[in-house]
Design a protein around this nucleic acid. Structure first.
Lengths: 112, 112
DNA sequence: TGAAATACCTATTAGTTCAAGGTATCCTGC
DNA sequence: GCAGGATACCTTGAACTAATAGGTATTTCA
């Protein structure tokens, strides 16, 4: 019946990465700026957060990568595997559930 | 200028506790059930999460407590201090910002 | 030439959350 | 009277996340 909770907010960085990479392949440095831009400065994640998550997602088979050299600099482009797609769906569901629960609580006494 | 992010996972349990206790004083065991009920089963936090958070919030002055004995059982009722109220406001703001950012990202290409 | 931007990366620390336990009382049913 | 479930408190330990703060190397532009 009552499903066990995921670790709570955990996965916001992971969720954002998977979501963006599901729309188009990108490289790490680009993702750092993209997250800040897309969320209109609401969320800003440093490279020290992004890269470890990318690596762990690739290690567990959610992402695949390919290297491209552009203007003398190497970029590592990531994109979702099927497993990554599944993972994304799961994180979206978790997020929506938690978000909904918090929303009700924050609405609070107003509609008690 | 871009504010630094709060630690991401932090605060959902803390936020819920402060929110509920801001509406009325409650004791730990009651809070465990209340969170589950209020969020309509979307969020369920065990005693192993609740009690440590309550203790740490009391230690840092966000909560005050008083003991009551009811039917031979001791209950520890918690309520917010002024500092707890400030903390609650901050967590609400953080949450709304993060939530908004994620919402935009999840809306995704649909409105790119 | 020197600084800023691009582009990758890791290590350490700090903080959260979870599962799993443990104590004790009360109430209900048998 | 006693067993089991609900009430009510609590802590420990492991697992995981994320934040800070670094580090390397290239290109571009002043």
């Amino acid at each position: 019946m009552a499903q066990s909770n995921p670790p709570f907010m955990s996965g916001v960085p992971e969720l954002l990465l998977l979501q963006l990479l599901n729309e188009q392949e990108m490289y790490g440095y680009e993702l750092v700026r993209s997250i800040k831009t897309v969320t209109r400065d609401a969320i800003s994640l440093g490279e020290g957060v992004i890269y470890p998550v990318l690596h762990s997602l690739e290690r567990n088979g959610s992402l695949k990568s390919k290297r491209k050299t552009v203007g003398g600099r190497t970029r590592v482009y990531y994109s979702l595997t099927r497993k990554g797609g599944d993972r994304l769906e799961k994180l979206q569901d978790d997020w929506r559930r938690i978000q909904g629960g918090v929303a009700i609580a924050l609405a609070g006494t107003a509609n008690a």
